[in-house]
Measured scan of single mutants.
Amino acid sequence: HHHHHGSGALAALHAEGPLAGLPVTRSDARVLIFNEWEERKKSDPWLRLDMSDKAIFRRYPHLR
Score class of each variant (00 low, 15 high):
His1Glu: 12
His1Lys: 10
His1Ser: 11
His1Val: 12
His1Trp: 05
His2Val: 14
His2Tyr: 14
His2Gln: 10
His2Glu: 10
His2Asp: 11
His2Lys: 10
His3Tyr: 11
His3Arg: 09
His3Thr: 12
His3Ile: 12
His3Asn: 09
His3Gly: 10
His3Trp: 11
His4Cys: 13
His4Lys: 10
His4Arg: 10
His4Trp: 14
His4Glu: 09
His4Gln: 09
His5Pro: 13
His5Leu: 15
His5Ser: 11
His5Asp: 11
His5Phe: 14
His5Ile: 15
His5Glu: 11
His5Asn: 12
His5Ala: 11
His5Tyr: 15
His5Lys: 12
Gly6Tyr: 10
Gly6Cys: 14
Gly6Thr: 14
Gly6Pro: 14
Gly6Asp: 11
Gly6Arg: 14
Gly6Ser: 13
Ser7Tyr: 13
Ser7Cys: 13
Ser7Gln: 12
Ser7Ile: 14
Ser7Trp: 12
Ser7Lys: 13
Ser7Ala: 12
Ser7Phe: 14
Gly8Thr: 12
Gly8Glu: 10
Gly8Tyr: 08
Gly8Ile: 11
Gly8Pro: 12
Ala9Val: 12
Ala9His: 14
Ala9Ser: 15
Ala9Pro: 11
Ala9Trp: 13
Ala9Arg: 13
Leu10Val: 14
Leu10Ile: 15
Leu10Met: 12
Leu10Tyr: 08
Leu10Cys: 10
Leu10Lys: 14
Ala11Leu: 06
Ala11Phe: 05
Ala11Cys: 05
Ala11Thr: 05
Ala11Lys: 03
Ala11Gly: 06
Ala12Tyr: 10
Ala12His: 14
Ala12Ser: 13
Ala12Gly: 08
Ala12Asn: 15
Ala12Phe: 12
Ala12Met: 15
Ala12Thr: 12
Leu13Gln: 04
Leu13Tyr: 04
Leu13Lys: 05
Leu13Val: 13
His14Val: 05
His14Tyr: 13
His14Asp: 02
His14Thr: 03
His14Arg: 02
His14Ala: 03
Ala15Lys: 15
Ala15Ile: 13
Ala15Asn: 12
Ala15Pro: 11
Ala15Gly: 12
Ala15Tyr: 09
Glu16His: 10
Glu16Ser: 13
Glu16Val: 11
Glu16Thr: 12
Glu16Leu: 07
Glu16Gly: 09
Gly17Lys: 07
Gly17Tyr: 03
Gly17Arg: 01
Gly17Phe: 03
Gly17His: 03
Gly17Pro: 06
Gly17Val: 02
Gly17Gln: 02
Gly17Trp: 03
Pro18Arg: 06
Pro18Leu: 07
Pro18Val: 07
Pro18Glu: 08
Pro18Phe: 05
Pro18Ala: 08
Pro18Trp: 04
Leu19Ile: 03
Leu19Val: 03
Leu19Lys: 04
Ala20Leu: 11
Ala20Ile: 10
Ala20Arg: 12
Ala20Val: 12
Gly21Asp: 05
Gly21Asn: 06
Gly21His: 04
Gly21Phe: 05
Leu22Tyr: 05
Leu22Asn: 03
Pro23Cys: 01
Pro23Glu: 00
Pro23Asp: 00
Pro23Met: 01
Pro23Arg: 00
Pro23Val: 01
Pro23Ser: 01
Pro23Thr: 00
Pro23Phe: 00
Pro23Tyr: 00
Pro23Leu: 01
Pro23His: 00
Pro23Ile: 01
Val24Ser: 03
Val24Ile: 12
Val24Trp: 04
Val24Cys: 09
Val24Tyr: 04
Thr25Val: 02
Thr25Ala: 07
Thr25Gly: 08
Arg26Lys: 15
Arg26Leu: 15
Arg26Pro: 10
Arg26Ser: 08
Ser27Tyr: 15
Ser27Met: 15
Ser27His: 15
Ser27Asn: 14
Ser27Cys: 13
Ser27Arg: 15
Asp28Pro: 01
Asp28Asn: 02
Asp28Trp: 03
Asp28Lys: 01
Asp28Thr: 02
Asp28Cys: 06
Asp28Gly: 05
Asp28Leu: 01
Ala29Arg: 00
Ala29Ser: 01
Ala29Thr: 00
Ala29Gly: 03
Ala29Leu: 00
Ala29Trp: 00
Ala29Asn: 00
Ala29Glu: 01
Ala29Gln: 00
Ala29Phe: 00
Arg30Asp: 03
Arg30Cys: 11
Arg30Ile: 10
Arg30His: 04
Arg30Gly: 04
Arg30Phe: 05
Arg30Glu: 07
Arg30Thr: 03
Val31Tyr: 08
Val31Leu: 14
Val31Thr: 09
Val31Arg: 13
Val31Glu: 05
Val31Asn: 06
Leu32Glu: 03
Leu32Val: 08
Leu32Tyr: 04
Leu32Phe: 05
Ile33Lys: 01
Ile33Cys: 03
Ile33Ser: 01
Ile33Arg: 01
Phe34Ala: 05
Phe34Pro: 00
Phe34Tyr: 14
Phe34Trp: 13
Asn35Cys: 11
Asn35His: 12
Asn35Gly: 07
Asn35Lys: 15
Asn35Ala: 14
Glu36Lys: 04
Glu36Tyr: 04
Glu36Ser: 05
Glu36Leu: 07
Glu36Arg: 04
Glu36Asp: 08
Trp37Cys: 01
Trp37Val: 02
Trp37Phe: 08
Trp37Gln: 02
Trp37Leu: 02
Trp37Arg: 01
Trp37Tyr: 09
Glu38Met: 15
Glu38Ala: 15
Glu38Asn: 15
Glu38Leu: 15
Glu38Ile: 15
Glu38Gln: 15
Glu38Ser: 13
Glu39Asp: 09
Glu39Arg: 10
Glu39Trp: 07
Glu39Thr: 10
Glu39Lys: 09
Glu39Val: 11
Glu39Leu: 11
Glu39Asn: 09
Glu39Tyr: 08
Arg40Ala: 13
Arg40Val: 05
Arg40Glu: 08
Arg40Leu: 14
Arg40Gly: 13
Arg40Trp: 06
Arg40Cys: 07
Arg40Pro: 01
Arg40Ile: 06
Lys41Met: 08
Lys41Leu: 09
Lys41Gly: 05
Lys41Ser: 11
Lys41Ala: 10
Lys41Thr: 08
Lys41Arg: 14
Lys42Arg: 10
Lys42His: 08
Lys42Ile: 09
Ser43Gln: 14
Ser43Ile: 13
Ser43Asn: 13
Ser43Thr: 15
Ser43Tyr: 15
Ser43Lys: 11
Ser43Cys: 12
Ser43Phe: 12
Ser43Ala: 12
Ser43Arg: 11
Ser43Glu: 10
Asp44Ile: 06
Asp44Pro: 04
Asp44Gln: 09
Asp44Cys: 07
Asp44Trp: 09
Asp44Met: 09
Asp44Lys: 09
Pro45Ile: 06
Pro45Asn: 07
Pro45Phe: 06
Pro45Val: 06
Trp46Lys: 13
Trp46Gln: 12
Trp46Thr: 15
Trp46Val: 07
Trp46Met: 14
Trp46Tyr: 15
Trp46Cys: 11
Trp46Ile: 07
Leu47Arg: 07
Leu47Glu: 07
Leu47Tyr: 15
Leu47Val: 14
Leu47Phe: 15
Leu47Met: 09
Leu47Asp: 05
Arg48Gln: 12
Arg48Ala: 10
Arg48Ile: 13
Arg48Glu: 10
Arg48Tyr: 07
Arg48Gly: 07
Leu49Val: 06
Leu49Trp: 03
Leu49Ala: 03
Leu49Thr: 03
Leu49Met: 05
Leu49Ser: 01
Asp50His: 04
Asp50Gln: 04
Asp50Val: 04
Asp50Trp: 04
Asp50Cys: 06
Asp50Ser: 04
Asp50Glu: 07
Met51Phe: 08
Met51Ala: 06
Met51His: 03
Met51Trp: 09
Ser52His: 02
Ser52Ala: 03
Ser52Phe: 01
Ser52Met: 01
Ser52Ile: 01
Asp53Val: 09
Asp53Glu: 09
Asp53Lys: 07
Lys54Trp: 10
Lys54Asn: 13
Lys54His: 10
Lys54Met: 11
Lys54Cys: 11
Ala55Phe: 12
Ala55Val: 10
Ala55Leu: 10
Ala55Gly: 05
Ala55Arg: 05
Ala55Lys: 05
Ile56Leu: 08
Ile56Pro: 00
Phe57Glu: 09
Phe57Thr: 07
Phe57Gly: 06
Phe57Asp: 09
Phe57Tyr: 12
Phe57Val: 08
Arg58Leu: 13
Arg58Lys: 14
Arg58Gln: 14
Arg58Met: 13
Arg58Cys: 08
Arg58Asp: 12
Arg59Leu: 09
Arg59Met: 08
Arg59Cys: 05
Arg59Trp: 04
Arg59Tyr: 05
Tyr60Arg: 00
Tyr60Thr: 00
Tyr60Gly: 00
Tyr60Lys: 00
Tyr60Cys: 01
Pro61Gly: 02
Pro61Leu: 02
Pro61Met: 02
Pro61Arg: 02
Pro61Val: 03
His62Cys: 01
His62Gln: 01
His62Asn: 01
His62Phe: 03
His62Leu: 01
His62Pro: 00
His62Met: 01
Leu63Asp: 00
Leu63Phe: 03
Leu63Gly: 00
Leu63Thr: 01
Leu63Lys: 00
Leu63Cys: 01
Leu63Val: 01
Leu63Tyr: 00
Leu63Trp: 00
Arg64Tyr: 12
Arg64Ser: 09
Arg64Leu: 12
Arg64Ala: 11
Arg64Asn: 09
Arg64Met: 12
Arg64His: 07
Arg64Asp: 08
